[in-house]
């Protein structure tokens, strides 16, 4: 990469890859907070559960990723889901068990499980 044009091309390509699959489907992004704090609270099995469940359910439009610290220590593990055209949903105190439910209801069924979201544990 030696020019600004190349960098801009890389940016456009990255943005496209983040929003659409190779087949042109819009992507639903699932990120799990995998900083030291999240990992200590058990985020690794949560990430794995999302990956496995998404694969098992053949959700080709779902992209599961790790991310850094989302910031609320006492609610780790935290996972956030952004579906196309929808506001981001923040799930807190996640476990591999809850992931199964979230995959079923939210990723497949399109309905948010409100009781697992940050709104349910804060005022």
């Amino acid at each position: 990469m030696t020019t600004l044009a190349e960098l801009n091309a890389a940016k456009d390509a990255a943005l496209a890859k983040m929003t659409k699959t190779g087949g042109g489907q819009e992507i639903t992004r699932v990120v799990v907070g995998l900083a030291t704090c999240g990992i200590a609270a058990g985020a690794t099995p949560v990430l794995k559960a999302f990956e496995e469940a998404a694969q098992a359910a053949e959700l080709s439009n779902v992209r599961v990723l790790q991310t850094g610290c989302i910031g609320m220590c006492q609610f780790e593990p935290i996972a956030e889901i952004t579906a196309p055209g929808q506001p981001k949903v923040t799930y807190v105190n996640m476990t591999a068990e809850k992931v199964k439910e979230v995959v079923e209801k939210h990723l497949k069924g399109g309905s948010v499980i409100e009781e697992y979201t940050v709104g349910a544990v804060t005022d």
């Binding site: 890389a10 990120v31 907070g33």
Partner: peptide
């Protein structure tokens, strides 16, 4: 932080 995948330069 908490937005992108830190291991991906893309």
């Amino acid at each position: 932080c908490g937005v992108i995948d830190p291991e991906s330069i893309e």
